[in-house]
């Protein structure tokens, strides 16, 4: 019995020492890990809303949930919006940060997360060697967000060979996300009747 107590004590001691050491490491790394998440969103916003001063972008929240992002110019006129689009792809949900200007023209897209089939669906965010941005997403730029669709659905977006499901999922989520953005904007402007009406909602 004494032997068991001794062994138990040694094991507990080792575990407590390990836990204490880890608590120290955790306290050092935690701020960095937290900052990492915020930085990811921030850099995605910069890619989705290029040529817009990142300092002017603000998140519109509903409690803890971020509903969309908006950028205001110095006269509190709307310049652009960004929203997160979720599309159910082949093997995962493709999450994309989408930027539109006040007329609803797409100005930037950045895939936040996806675990599609490597080599096929993952091409939605593939950047060819020597290029700066993903070639699939580039064809969205300058198009109206509400009308965007893949060719098979009567639109202009050329699907990725071998990854039509991922291509369509992302494209649809961009259009659907824009529709719900408009609804949210409308609801918000109805509440705050004095603030500038977003042009995109017309």
């Amino acid at each position: 019995m004494k032997e068991v107590a001794k062994l138990g004590f040694v094991l507990t001691l080792v575990t407590v020492l390990a836990a204490a050491g880890l608590a120290m490491v955790y306290s050092i790394t935690k701020p960095r890990i937290d900052a990492q998440g915020a930085m990811e969103t921030e850099s995605a916003l910069i890619e989705a809303l290029p040529q817009i001063d990142p300092a002017s972008i603000e998140a519109v929240r509903d409690g803890d949930e971020i509903r969309y992002y908006r950028a205001l110019d110095s006269d509190s006129q709307y310049l652009a919006f960004a929203y997160i689009a979720n599309g159910s792809g082949y093997s995962s949900v493709i999450k994309t940060m989408v930027g539109v200007d006040k007329d609803g023209t797409l100005i930037g897209l950045k895939v936040l997360s996806q675990t599609e089939t490597p080599g096929l669906g993952t091409k939605v965010e593939e950047i060819k060697y020597g290029e700066a941005d993903p070639w699939f997403l580039r064809q969205f730029l300058g198009k109206k967000a509400d009308g965007v669709a893949v060719k098979a659905d009567g639109g202009e977006i050329v699907s990725i060979t071998g990854a039509t499901i991922s291509s369509r999922a992302l494209t649809k989520s961009v259009a659907n996300g824009y529709t719900s953005l408009l609804k949210r904007l409308e609801a918000d402007s109805a509440m705050a009747s004095t603030s500038a009406e977003p042009d995109g909602s017309e």
């Binding site: 050491g21 490491v25 790394t29 990492q36």
Partner: peptide
């Protein structure tokens, strides 16, 4: 330790 450090420095 490796897990936490990687999450912080090479996310």
């Amino acid at each position: 330790i490796v897990d936490l450090s990687m999450a912080g420095f090479v996310p």
